[in-house]
Design a protein around this nucleic acid. Sequence first.
DNA 1: TGAACTTAACCGACCGGACGGTACAGAGGT
DNA 2: ACCTCTGTACCGTCCGGTCGGTTAAGTTCA
Lengths: 182, 182
Amino acid sequence: MRKHSVEPRNASLKILEAARALAAREGAGKITIEAVAKEAGLSKGGVLYNFSTKKALLSGLLDQMLVAHRQLLEKVPERYPSRTLRGHLETVLQSQDLDDDLSMAILAASASDPRLLDPLRTELTCDLERILSDAKRSPDAMIAVLAIQGLRFQMLLNLPDGGADIREGVIERLRTIIDELE
Amino acid sequence: MRKHSVEPRNASLKILEAARALAAREGAGKITIEAVAKEAGLSKGGVLYNFSTKKALLSGLLDQMLVAHRQLLEKVPERYPSRTLRGHLETVLQSQDLDDDLSMAILAASASDPRLLDPLRTELTCDLERILSDAKRSPDAMIAVLAIQGLRFQMLLNLPDGGADIREGVIERLRTIIDELE
DNA sequence: TGAACTTAACCGACCGGACGGTACAGAGGT
DNA sequence: ACCTCTGTACCGTCCGGTCGGTTAAGTTCA
């Protein structure tokens, strides 16, 4: 029947990319199917062909972010102790503002459908398990996790951070906490 | 055609209360002016008289939460060192799930209008300033702040927490960190 | 080979309803 | 009489999703 050597021209990726660009340029609130379609050089129908619903689109975006997250984690050299935790920290520090509006969009959507975040939850559950089993003193490890999470949301929502010097101090401190875990 | 002759003045409070109840019962996504009106036992016009726009309503909700937050902070006995920080921790621990959907609603709305969170930002800026000036080792204090923030979001979004024992360990550890700040 | 047919990918008009906001007409109290 | 407040009706817009095309690239078979 079908041999199909050439992959079906995947517009999905282009669509996701368009959504990212759109979110970065216009803000989280501007992600509508039509807008994404226009940005991707497609029609509304085209987008809906690839993602049968808007939730599916957002879900796809989250998925992409999780994949990127995983890749970043793997880049942490194996020899490091508390590898996962360290990876989390670096991920947060590297994250540019580009992802912020995207995250906000997903967050906003999760207000009406909490299950949208399920993939994130399972991913975090995995990571957390690894982190806690790696570390000697789990409370300290968990506090580091929480602080990193706090840092992420602080950046996401533009909450006050106490100024640059505090920021650096915190990062340094977090690093030493992680170092001393094992 | 007055039925309840009592307390005709200013339905704002009742409206806010209704919005809270609605959010708690139906979820964050269900906060619409009409729904709130129905819940509060008045009409859409009535709600819009008190809050001329939906943003104003959400803003009012945020305000109420901040007031409650401030009151909780004041309940921490003065003699405690790092009073504000301690208050933050206790606030998070006491917070009911009731507030969760409300917070989600506000968060979601802030995706399309980031300035909605401005009051929160200024409040936090104040608190942070006090916390950092109170504490001897500011990085540690900031880490505590971040961890508490992380805790809040973890609860808000139902992110994994590593289980009850870890949770307790974290709380205890946070308390000692705070104790040792001054 | 080439006509008929199938299918994947995409288009775009349209629908329906949700929702924020407006207009205006009272009602009640002072 | 006036001001504060509330109710009803309505409007316009936005947006997600549907649906009947349409195009192009195979595939089948005479």
